[in-house]
Amino acid sequence: MPATVAVTTLLQEKFPQVTPRASLDLEAVNVPPADVIAVLKALRDDHGFDMLVDLTAIDWAEGVSPRFTVVYHVFSTTHHGYIRVAANCANDELPAMPTAVGLWAGANWHEREAYDMFGIKFDGHPDLRRILMWDEYPHFPLRKEFPLAGIETPLPDPDVVAETGAKAIAAPMMGGPFVAATGEINLTEAEPRAKDESWSEVREKPKA
């Protein structure tokens, strides 16, 4: 679509550091983290992209650098176009990104969710707390090294724990739904099967 191709070009006139991003559908741009807010503001004010429909993050696995990418999907309620803006977090250990709450009030909960699931700190966020897991939860579940079954963790309410002895345990994957692993075609790895994440002398118990 010629109308949307122009957006990247127009953006590049103002921000030469913006580069096109590989995408199968929408127009997408890569932006350095420092300029994300300026670019989003330009998109909102100059190009009519007035609604932030989605904000999320991708973890490219442990050891990959840059490890975390924050992805914004911005939509226009007037010309009905989408654009994807992606920014890699500079630090792989303590990922951070400037907040977009100043541009869209709706970014508040999306950023809290990205913090909850990936541990990405949004600088300047007014109220960066966990949103889906409970406040004391020590892990970031959508990071790639975190197992699907979870890690043994105490529950938040001491009175209920005292009465029931319940805690968050690693879910039994044996006999559970069949799950598959991502990646290249390797039948023994990719075949969906009940995952055994119980620990043994070969596989160590995950540290809490």
Binding site: M117, L142, F146, L148, P177, V179, A180, A181, T182, P192
Partner: peptide
């Protein structure tokens, strides 16, 4: 979302 990363598309 975590479950989706461990499943084929149809699953």
């Amino acid at each position: 979302e975590k479950i989706a990363e461990n499943m084929t598309y149809n699953q």
